[in-house]
Design a protein around this nucleic acid. Structure first.
Lengths: 122, 122
DNA sequence: AAAACACTTGAATAAATGCTCATATAACTA
DNA sequence: TAGTTATATGAGCATTTATTCAAGTGTTTT
């Protein structure tokens, strides 16, 4: 029997289920894709960022408006907007001193919706 | 002017954009719903859990099979399966000593797909 | 009954994360 | 030019979190 995978530990199941394990292994996406996917969901996994995204789905807003809306400091909002921008979820435009943020596209809404479907089925 | 919201700080924008801010505020979902949504995505925001979910989407598997597949300790997998179960994403059935885990439903796949759409557009 | 097996669980630890505070930058205003 | 405004950013801190290690539970085997 050829050693198809590196084992940390092995139990009888592994031998019995070897075919299934290898079959699943073959179908698994690239390690990197799954990592990227986790990184994306990590961005959605914070209620401050979720609230910012929800607000921006309703209207383009500047940093201090978001801060007031969410009752948080401008600095905290600015830090989170940076995270959202790095994840390519929001974009901004500058108008004098004021920086307006908005959603890049409507994927955000679709991801929200899928999440809500799960929560509401419970 | 009635004080419609508690402010941490206020800038000129807030006054100029007051209508928009209040309009967005009215449309925002319950604080609690957004918190729950963030909690759900937090579960997806870890590559180990993403890989477990992906594997279980392919086949029902026992704990030690997943451990071997992902090249991690059985204890680490068990801890993460607990998180996934609490989020109502996986269920299990016992067969003698062996515990088999599987997905609760196909929402997982749909949430994955939405995420992948975003990643692949970049 | 004792040993082996599959899994769970709690404590400990190292790493990551969100917010605050102080400061920096850039644009406007007096 | 100096001061104000809107935003960005770096360091520090407290909290959360993923994994490991050791020990425990329940089932099967000998």
């Amino acid at each position: 029997m050829t050693e198809k995978f590196n084992l940390i530990e092995r139990c009888d199941c592994n031998v019995i289920h070897e075919d299934i394990i290898n079959q699943v292994r073959d179908k698994m996406p690239q390690e990197e894709s799954l990592y990227d996917l986790a990184e994306l969901f990590k961005v959605f996994g914070d209620s401050t960022r979720i609230r910012i995204l929800w607000a921006l789905h309703e209207a383009e807003m500047c940093v201090c408006d978001i801060a007031v809306l969410l009752n948080m400091t401008q600095s905290a909002i600015s830090h989170q907007l940076r995270v959202l921008k790095q994840a390519n979820l929001v974009k901004n435009r500058k108008e004098g001193k004021v920086v307006y943020y908005s959603l890049v596209d409507d994927h955000v809404r679709e991801i929200f919706d899928q999440g809500l479907i799960h929560i509401n089925e419970k």
